[in-house]
Nucleic acid binder design. Structure first.
Length: 175
RNA sequence: AGAGUGGGCCGGGCGAUUGCCGGCGGGGCGGGCUUCGGCGCGCGCCCGCUGGAGGAAAGUCCGAGCACCACAGGGCACGAUGCUUCCUAACGGGAAGGCGGGGCGACCCGACGGAAAGUGCAACAGAAAAGAUACCGCCGAUGGCCCGCAAGGGCACAGGUAAGGUUGAAAUGGUGAGGUAAGAGCUCACCGGCGUCGUGGCGACACGGCGGCCUGGCAAACCCCAUCGGGUGCAAGGCCAAAUAGGGAACGAUGCGGCGGCCCGCCGCGCUAUAGUUCCGGGUAGGCUGCUCGAGCCGGAUGGCGACGUCCGGCCCAGAUGAAUGAUCGCCCCGGCGCCUCGGUUCACGCCGCAGCGCCGGACAAGACUCGGCUUACAGGCCCACUCUAUUU
RNA sequence: GCGCGUGUAGCACAACGGUUAGUGCUUCGGCCUUCCAAGCCGAAGAUACGGGUUCGAUUCCCGUCACGCGCU
């Protein structure tokens, strides 16, 4: 699992190795990675596959080639009124977003994810959520890059498992 | 020192790494115009600088601004408010004051107009629950009956009475004295209430004089009186507008002949009736705007008991839209618990104090057009004024 | 975001401001029956919370909380 501090260490390493501001392995998270239209949410709920974790329920849908959105994966988060007050819902959203931001390089492109939060998430830590979401992603066939020694992750290592999701996609299609 | 009252303020701090939204500048990319020098435009690409939640942002309970719709004027209905004066853009908010209630006190609380405009309600109990009656009682002076020669005595029939008793949340002013057959505001004194006059006060009211004893409660029951209120809300409203399907309009395709020097134009004939092209209008998805300079914030002076007003100077302080202000780590700060060391005290147990280490905890809660309030939630802490109790001097 | 409405036993509903808050189903116990069901008898169980008005509040008023509906 990749928790926050470990990511930080790897980031520090890459910084010390070289500035490389144009590197694709930074951890940005802009609007291209977000689902912004109600219709896209509805599509994902209707056509997507579903998997549940302790803190979340995730819907996943592979976009058709002619749809907009490009080669990026996209994320939409729904925190309903039932899962807490505004402060709790904000906390839930931010944690989920942080997970996707830190793990953006191995997640499969061309997919839409919708995450529904559950009330227990507002008191959970990022590490707990990461463990939970890793399990959920594996259920979709998306495997995070090799295990707990991720702290030695180099740009190459990060890039390598990015082929994994394709395999996962193929496996899912075969079903 | 302890207990308490009122008012004001804060709402963790610093750093590292990495992100998000807005603004400005630079670069890059894209296409446009060009007199090839440049000019201005867009970007969900990069870099730098800079700004980025609250005292309640909350509940949506009031009041406004702003926008659209409606509207001669007046009344009815409906709703809200309800001691007085003032503050304010306005308010159901605030300040000062009056009256009533609570507290030893500092202070706190109060929907606090009208019951003599009318209607209505009061279970059970009780004689009686609102124009009165008389259950137990008391009296029986007067009239009646009986006894007696008479004085007088008796009965309780007529009748008088409301002091005492009983019920109830509430019973037709209270206490005392006189008075009487017994009694009664029947009379008197004081208190309370009502009316009226005077004085003080802008006023709510207060104080005093006089009069007579005349009218119980509930209006958060209907109601009456006074004042206020048109409706809907930024998802208001304005602008641009793809695709698709309707609607409206025009053009062109073109030719031949004639008039004519030629063009335009006109006339006649021929061709296409459906498609095409273009434009217009409504308008969906979507986008832009409204959207942040405002009854604004800070400081000073000044008027006012105060709420607040006036003047001067300075400042620009979120504008997101499936919705940003985050995540992780380190150090510090505050509180609690435990361990241990040292010090004080004790014969000792123990108690107290400081430092260190470890663990746990640090609230309530986040803009959605903008303000003024109210209400509700809230760990911990700071400051000012005052009250009571105890002790010391 | 805005505008409305409702809270009564486990469930569905009643109750002019006035006895000990009723009715049906449910649950439990008993009777009946060979046993079960039905029937009969009995019992348990509630006014969302906090204030106020009133002699007295499920009812009237105010404030919280929860739930539901509508607009988009």
């Amino acid at each position: 699992m990749r928790t926050g501090p470990k990511q930080n260490e790897s980031q520090k390493q890459s910084d010390s190795a070289g500035p490389a501001p144009e590197s694709p392995h930074r951890f940005k998270f802009g609007p291209r990675h977000r689902i912004l239209r109600r219709a896209d949410f509805q599509l994902t709920y209707g056509e997507g596959r579903r998997a549940h974790g302790r803190f979340v329920a995730v819907f996943c849908r592979r976009r058709a080639r002619d749809e907009p959105g490009g080669e990026f994966w996209r994320l939409g988060i729904t925190a309903t009124r039932k899962s807490g007050n505004a402060v709790r819902r904000n906390r839930q959203r931010r944690l989920v977003r942080e997970y996707f931001r830190l793990n953006q390089h191995w997640l499969p492109g061309g997919c839409d994810f919708v995450v529904n939060t559950r009330s227990g998430l507002s008191t959970a830590s990022l590490a707990e959520l990461a463990k939970d979401l890793d399990r959920v992603m594996q259920r979709f066939g998306f495997r995070p890059p090799a295990g707990p020694n991720a702290e030695s992750k180099t740009p190459a290592e990060i890039e390598a498992p990015s082929e994994g999701p394709d395999k996962g996609q193929k496996a899912r299609k075969a079903q």
